[in-house]
Amino acid sequence: MRATVVTITSGKGGVGKTTITANLSVALAMLGQRVIAIDTDIGLRNLDVVMGLENRIVYDLVDVVEGRCRLRQALIRDKRLSELFLLPAAQTRDKSAVNPEQMVRLCDQLRPEFDYVMIDSPAGIEQGYRNAVAPSDRVLIITTPEVSAVRDADRIVGLVEAGEKGPPKLIINRLNPAMVRREQMLSTADVVEILAIDLIGVVPEDPAVIVSTNRGSPVALDGRSPSGQAFRNIAGRLMGKDIPIMPIKESANVLERLSRLVRG
């Protein structure tokens, strides 16, 4: 198996990188892929919590890089899916503990053993980001439909394009169709117009995500939630399947437009 290394990044913090990394990893494993998720947010690790594996951490990424353990010893098998693994970040160090070359070497060691290596990038454009992007074959950029998030995403797209990693793809997270219809939120078209990269998926705003994060049970496992469905679709598209993007009703119907006119 030669893995595809996918880095999930955004620039802006809090837009859903960790949630999406966890859920895409789960969804790919549900599709029969052998997956390892790596948390590179050293010092502010979260991927372990979102996946519900925080009690099982013995060794972490920094231990591996500094030679205190073998790579295999630091991998944590998921409690639900046997083909899904996690390499957690360290919590007591910071992003200077690892450099991009070490990340590339680490991923080269993992490539033969997995189908997908999913790297959760920290926010920002400094060392942490550079560590996360260095080994990647593909980059997924996450944004929410908010002006500030899109601004940061644009900066990251510029950096990825300049770094010759191939064109990144976009995931719009936390879209609220009702707010878009009321013109209180940017639409998918607005975001894509500014960022001008291919869209690989749109995840709707879903309260089930917060519940799942707190419980450590990624929502992609839940057959009923709309966000879970979106994550599974994105995983399919990542594997090359042709899954049309769910039409999220973003334009107002006649009644809504009339009432908006009257309100003025």
Binding site: R151, D154, R155, I194
Partner: peptide, 24 residues
């Protein structure tokens, strides 16, 4: 080319850009 957020063109003469200048 399009200038993305964080990119800049500085030049002491005229500048014609074929593309967009994104916010930032």
């Amino acid at each position: 080319r399009t200038l993305r957020s964080g990119q800049a063109v500085h030049y002491p003469g005229h500048v014609t850009l074929i593309g967009d200048v994104n916010p930032g």
